[in-house]
């Protein structure tokens, strides 16, 4: 059970430069399941253990990056309440009709102080994980690639970090799990609506609306190493890893899709509860906060965004 009426990051819509190359990457290398295509040419995917019809949507465009990140909420009542609260906060808010994304109910789309667009929705068709709900097997056969069980979170970059953190905490009731502080200035925030160490992370950055990565969940460190093997076997653009983050404790590897959008696959964090207190990292220890083994900052990891 989720711990707030915002259940989880439910979909991310990414722009890609070459749709065919992106489909090979997300379906065959990352190993999501393709679940639909629509008349606009968008392609829909899900992780094998996700129940909802899709969690990743790809759209061909002339610049890569993130169109929007959508969160599933508990029901239509909460959707309406959040919509009102978002307007009161000062967001631009619009209703996107049901079916605009196939299999998805009505969406409430809103902007944020960092220039990112988000959505809330209360319904999406159930595709299921292929195992059924009566005496199921533990996992499906015939999976491809890195085989993540689900889309997990995004890290975004933007200027008004304080504003977007306030939006998520005050309007959507997310908890701050970890923060990076430069003296009194927050430069990084990790926020959750659930038991996870993060459902969204935000880093302070001079430009609005930038996308750092979309992350997908693996089960074990061994699976992270297997993902690293696949990255070399298929000559995928490696960013960094396998390694461990100090922040969130994730064991992780980062790589790029063929259009330069960064992906992460990771395993292992911790269980957050709302009565816990946030963890603070100071920028003088930023090396180990980000890469606990190297204890060194990596210019590319910090500065390459779409």
């Amino acid at each position: 059970m989720a711990l707030s009426a915002v259940l989880r990051p439910g979909h991310v819509c990414l722009r890609v430069l070459d749709l065919d190359a992106a489909i090979v990457h997300y379906r065959d290398r990352l190993g999501l399941q393709e679940t639909d295509r629509d008349e606009q040419g968008r392609v829909y995917f899900k992780g094998w253990d996700e129940q909802d019809w899709f969690s990743v949507v790809l759209r061909e465009a002339d610049s890569p990056g993130m169109d929007y990140l959508g969160f599933r909420v508990l029901n239509e009542d909460h959707l309406a309440r959040y919509e009102e609260a978002l307007r009161a906060f000062g967001c631009q808010v619009e209703r996107i009709p049901a079916g605009e994304l196939r299999h998805c109910g009505e969406r409430v789309r809103f902007d944020s102080p960092t220039g990112h667009w988000f959505e809330l929705y209360a319904s999406k068709d159930c595709k299921g994980n292929g195992l059924g709900r009566l005496n199921p097997n533990p996992w499906p056969e015939g999976l491809k690639g890195m085989q993540p069980s689900r889309f997990d979170h995004c890290l975004i970059y933007g200027d008004d970090l304080d504003g977007t953190v306030r939006l998520f905490r005050e309007v959507l009731a997310f908890d701050l799990t970890e923060q990076i502080m430069e003296g009194d200035l927050m430069v990084g925030a990790f926020l959750t609506c659930s038991n996870k160490a993060h459902d969204i992370a935000i880093i302070r950055h001079p430009e609005k609306g930038r996308f750092h990565h979309a992350s997908f969940l693996l089960g074990t460190w061994e699976e992270v190493l297997r993902a690293a093997d696949l990255i070399s076997m298929h000559d995928i653009s490696l960013d960094i890893g396998p390694t461990r983050h100090g922040i969130t404790r994730g064991r992780t590897i980062y790589f790029f899709d063929p259009s330069g959008n960064r992906n992460e696959v990771f395993c292992g964090d911790y269980t957050w509860y709302p009565d816990h207190q946030p963890i603070t990292w100071t920028t003088d220890q930023l090396g180990r906060a980000i890469f606990f083994h190297d204890r060194k900052l990596n210019e590319n990891f910090l500065s390459v965004v779409t």
Partner: peptide, 11 residues
């Protein structure tokens, strides 16, 4: 300088 290697980041 090397970035994403995919034409996306401009590095």
């Amino acid at each position: 300088p090397v970035g994403c290697r995919g034409g996306g980041c401009g590095v």
